[in-house]
Amino acid sequence: MPDAAFDDIARAFDSRATFATFTRTCGRARVGAMMDHAHDLACVRAATDRLLSAVAELDNASLAEPSRLPGWSRGHVLAHLARNADALVNVLQGRPMYTSAEARDADIERDAARSLEVQIADVRESAARFQTAGEAPADWSRTVELRNGITDSASRVPFRRWAEVELHHVDLGIGYELEDLPAEFLEREAAFLVQRFAGHPDIPATRVTDGTRAWTTGREAGSPGITVTGRPADVVGWLAGRRDGVALEVHGGKLPKLPPL
Rank of each mutant, 00 (worst) to 15 (best):
P232H: 03
R95D: 09
K257F: 06
N60G: 09
A5G: 06
G218H: 13
D180Q: 02
A106V: 03
Q195L: 10
D49K: 03
A138N: 11
R83T: 12
P66W: 13
S141Q: 15
P260N: 14
D8C: 05
A20G: 13
E117F: 09
S153Y: 11
R129H: 00
L116S: 09
P201H: 03
R16C: 06
L178K: 06
A87T: 01
L261Y: 12
E249C: 05
G252D: 11
A205Y: 10
H169M: 01
V235E: 04
D7E: 15
E187G: 12
R161W: 07
A5E: 14
T206S: 13
G173Q: 10
E117K: 14
E135T: 01
D244R: 07
V118H: 11
E166C: 08
P2N: 08
L52R: 01
R161F: 08
G218A: 12
A5Q: 14
H76P: 02
P137S: 13
A113C: 09
N90M: 05
L248M: 00
A46Q: 07
A154R: 05
R156D: 07
A4C: 04
A190W: 10
G211W: 02
L186R: 14
A127N: 00
L51K: 01
P2Q: 08
E164S: 06
A191V: 01
